[in-house]
């Protein structure tokens, strides 16, 4: 493994939401600061910078990860997905996003991006989760507005809808 110079900026090349992306980062630069202030995708939020609140959760190579506990230089060569990837088209919402809107599963919306990304990566792997599993995933996130119940409902609704879609695809 190559040794990085503390004072230098290093090239970081990665895939962001399906498209190639590149930037420069000092070894100590957090991925959150890199994405938000160097790359300019601000949908990923910073809530605690010590890995507890979950607001900064993104998908790195298919796994949910805390961007605030990741250094930008670590994602060289990785595939990243952020909340900006979830809508199928401008002006439209994905299944999970629409379920959140329908269920009033957000208020201030600050923690929401992280929650969406955790659920999105989870539902890809677990298409028919029960409520307990959903709650287990959500337990890695802090929300101070909603009291969580509408988030659980939205996640269950989205899971059911996604399962229906998959069944239709399989049947077709």
């Amino acid at each position: 493994m190559s040794r990085l110079q503390a004072k230098h900026r290093h090239d970081v090349r990665f895939t962001l939401n399906g498209k190639p992306c590149a930037g420069e980062a000092e070894p100590r630069l957090l991925l959150t600061d890199f994405l938000r202030h160097r790359i300019g995708v601000t949908g990923t939020h910073v809530g605690c910078e010590h890995g507890v609140c979950g607001a900064c959760t993104i998908d790195i190579d298919g796994q949910p990860a805390r961007a605030c506990l990741t250094l930008a230089v670590q994602i060289d060569g990785c595939e990243l997905r952020t909340v900006e990837s979830l809508a199928p088209a401008a002006g439209r919402l994905g299944v999970l996003q629409a379920a959140f809107k329908r269920n009033h599963a957000l208020q201030c919306g600050f923690c929401t991006a992280g929650i969406l990304m955790s659920l999105d990566t989870f539902l890809r792997e677990h298409p028919q989760p029960d409520e307990e599993k959903i709650r287990d995933v959500l337990s890695g996130h802090l929300c101070r507005c909603t009291g969580y119940a509408p988030i659980v409902r939205a996640a269950l609704e989205a899971a059911a809808e996604l399962a229906d879609q998959n069944r239709e695809k399989t049947d077709a």
Partner: peptide, 21 residues
């Protein structure tokens, strides 16, 4: 009526404009 919130679409797609955004 519990109409859908006008605030939600931008917040759900990462287009919110918070202080540090």
């Amino acid at each position: 009526q519990s109409i859908p919130r006008v605030e939600d679409s931008s917040l759900l797609t990462g287009r919110g404009r918070f202080m540090d955004d």
